[in-house]
Every structure is written in C-alpha cells, then in structure tokens.
Write a protein that binds this DNA or RNA. Sequence first.
RNA 1: GCGGACGUAGUUCAAUGGUAGAACACUAGCCUUCCAAGCUAGUUAUGCCGGUUCGAUCCCGGUCGUCCGCUCCA
Length: 505
Amino acid sequence: MRGKEIMIDMKDIVALCKRRGFIFAASDIYGGLNGFWDFGPLGVELKNNLRDQWWKSMVITPPLGLDGKPVQIVGLDSAIIQNPKAWIASGHVGGFSDPMVDCRETKKRYRADQIIVLVPKDTEGSWLAFEEGTDELLKRKKMVKFWGSNILNTATLLTKFDISDYDKIIAPDAKKAGTLTEPRQFNLMLDTYPGVVRDDAHKAYLRPETAQGIFLNFKNVVDSSRVRIPFGIAQIGKAFRNEVTPRNFIFRSREFEQMEMEWFCEPDEAKKWHEFWIEERKNWWRSMGLTSDNILMRPHDADELAHYAKEGLGTYDVEYKFPFTDPGFGELEGIAHRCDFDLKAHQEHSGQKLEYFDQPNNKRFIPHVIEPAAGLTRGVLALICEAYTIDETRPSGCYLNFLPALAPKKAAILPLTAKDEHVPIAQKLYMELREEFPVDLDIKQNIGKRYARQDEIGTPYCFTIDNDTLSDSTVTVRDRNTMKQERINLDNVAKYLREKIKPVS
RNA sequence: GCGGACGUAGUUCAAUGGUAGAACACUAGCCUUCCAAGCUAGUUAUGCCGGUUCGAUCCCGGUCGUCCGCUCCA
C-alpha cells in the first residue's frame, strides 16, 4: 500500500507499463528518444477514458455555477501550429527562453538574468557575482574578504556585461574568477518550418500550451456560438516543450497532452470564479480515484508565477504524490488567474478588437480569464501510480486498482477450460458484451494465469463459464480487488456490468 | 546542457579476449472444474558506431539511452 510498509518502486511500475502494453519508450527499437513516449494498446484506452471523463465534465455536463444553473462551456480543437506572431504576443518567444551560464569550477548552472554582479567603484580587482536573493550578510562577508573595507560598488545584471568582462567575475559559488561560460539561450519551444523552403522567414512553433489556440479563437467562438459571459472554451491536445531534463517516466516529457479550459468572466467576478474552479477541479481529480492523502492543493509562491499570472490573483496547483516525488508532490493541474493578459496582448499585436460587448448592460470590456489547465499525460501516470497495489498474496504480486469507469478493459470472459462445452458459451457472451463494453475473451492457459493477467491490467471483473453454467446458466463473477466470487445468471451479466461501471462523479 | 554511475532475453541475474547460460515470464500442445499448478516443445539478449586485436559482449573512443545529483519546469 502507498506510504505504508511496502514502498512502491517506480521501476516496477515502468516495467509493468511496458510488459502489459500501457506505455513504451518512443522509437524503442532505435534506442528510444529522450522525453518522448508511446501509449500502447491499454495505455491509449486508459488515456482516452480519462480524456473523455474530462470532456464530459467540462463540455457535455458542465458543473452547476454560482447561481445553481449549469455553466456554459464549448469545445475547440485548434491547430498545433499557429502564426508565429501568436507566440510573440503571448510572451513565449521572449519569455520562454532563458539565458543560462555554467560555472566551470563548481559545475553549477545559473540563469544569467538572475545573477547580479557587484563591481567595485574603482573597478579594480575581482567582481563578485551573486544569485538574486542572496543574503546581504553573505554578500558583505564576501566583499570584505575580496575588497577589504572598500565595499562601495555598483550592482548590475550579468546579462548587461560583455563576454570579455567575464574573466574578472567570480561566480557565486566559485573561488577563482573567470569560470563562467558565455550565456546560452535555452529555447523551450520546439520549432519547425512549414512550407518546402527552410528559412527563418518561415519559422513557426509547435505550441507549448493549448491555451493560446483558445484565445486566438475567442472572437470566432463569441461570434458564432451564442455564448454569453461567463462562459468557457475547452480544448484537449498535444503540446510540446524542450524541457531541459525530461525525467520521471512520462511525468516531464517533451511531447505531452493537455486538457485546458479558459473561463471568460467579468473582471470583478474573477476572484469568485477562481475559487469556484479550484474547488471543482480538486473534486474532479478525487472523482477519478485519486485519494485525498495523495492530492494536495497548493498556492504558487509569488516568485514562481508565470509571466501571464503576475498581475492576477495567483495560481493554485493540484498536486499528486507520485512515488518519485514522495514525500513531496508533483503538479497535475494549475488553476491560474490570467486576468486579461492574453486577450489584451493578442488585441494589441493583431489589431483586432477582442472586447466583449455586454448587450443588456451596454458595456464593453476585455474579459478576465480563469484557466484550469490539466496534464492528461500526467493524469494517466497518476492514475497508474494510484492504482498500482502490491499484494504479495496473489500470484501476480500486484494489481491495478482502476475505477471501473476508467479501466481499459471492463471485464474478461473466461471459459474455465478450453473444452468444447465452455468455449461456445463464452464466445456468445463476448459477442454480446463487446457491443456495450471493452471486454477481453481469453481461452488459453489455466484459469490462474488468466486471472493474474487481468489483475495486472486492472480489469475489474472476470466472468467464468464452468460446468454449472451448462446446467443452470449461471457464471461466476470474480472481483479484482477482493478475489471473491459470486454466481450470477448468464442473462444478467450485461446488467451487472452496467450497474457496476457507473459513470464517475 | 554539466558531473557521477550504468547498459547481457520481456524481467531478474550469470559468464567470458575464442560456441553467451539459467530462472521466471511468454507462445504452442497435452492435462486441468477456479487463482501464474504439472508435463513436453518453442521464441527471445551483449543499445548503436568505430578503434585496438588473428579474434571484442569484455579493452579504448564516440554516440544513444537509463538512473542519481545540479539546472530548468507556463
């Protein structure tokens, strides 16, 4: 069990995911590619299930709003590649690339725009570099050490210096001067060149978030779909980021899938809606089977806010305790207050009016935006980690305890033996059930092995046809979690599944 | 991108400068009336490229990948 005597090893989860066809390394036969992953036959089912639950909870059956009536949310599927001007407006071209410097002596890496260099008034001797936020006392000690009592100086950002000055600068943790490398740009957006000619004029970006596609279509949606403020636009899709260090299985990958909803509302109602969505989103993740102990709601500190959220009322993270973050937590979703940052920016850069006209009150304004932005890829990983249950008493050693509604396979139909009497009944049941549920028919090998396999892929129910079936038309139902069996009538199997696999939330 | 460790079947682990082996898993058959049982047979590996060598999985270099620590993380 999680957090108890038996520790869960991420390696075992990764091995299970590969062994049973949930997740493979992308281009595995070529040795993989760092930060890219493929979803196998069961992984894609699981991912689709989680995706569909989100879509249903947002677009098909959105929650009741502050007035007790269902809120209005419409869907969208925008292109991955948009006009590159969109990413200039959004701040990603300017703000999504950081200049980094390395220290050759200490092997540490710093953001050049967060290093402050103190230069003595007479510019003689060593210049001292500090990370932003370094304690004043520490600074003073170092100044006294290098400059004696003569500590008059000017403070300048490292980015303002010419590379020829670097040999005078002592890096924050170094003893000698001149150990910092030239700043290098880390561009966190992947780019591409639409069209057959590859030159800078045709450079475009793979979206680093799906959100901007929503803002770009704000006007189109308002003009075409009779939505009225407050309302939301929801989108699910791939996004791409050049993560410096893809790590922790699919948690931080360079290609991943997002589920984002932009909620447009009146500026003075934004705070209320922010709180509303924080509560909604927490409850949604719980309804997906993530237990309270492993879920955490965390407000962002001011210094970790994204560029668009700085003027807003902050961001709340929904975080999950993954085995590799335990006892810490990792982000599943951020619920940001984006103010009117994005629409205003796109209005300025595009020259198009992105105001909303409130007809009854005869007023125009740029809506404020609350953004619940969830990671579908991360969500799948959280579901797997949450479901992974060690049970040394059973042959498989573990099972995946998915909610029935999310399990890739809802049931397996197993003739107890491969004899002629059992198999045809199983086949008939399978043909009937598959019209309504994703189910497996497994005839080969002894029954224990087949139960074990279904445990490992998280199938909640197994229906077994035995000799009693021949005489009284009953089958056994085996419950994945308890391994208990009961007999039900063959005719009631579909009904049984329908009742057990209730829609979540 | 930096530093360190590592890379042998699906998994866990052997072995060797000269034919790469086991267990479990997997597949098939037999058997089997409920939890990876039994019997028989079978598939599957030295990440990739190069160098040294008569010969390299082993030694060396590069590369790719993994893990740990930095760094980054909208």
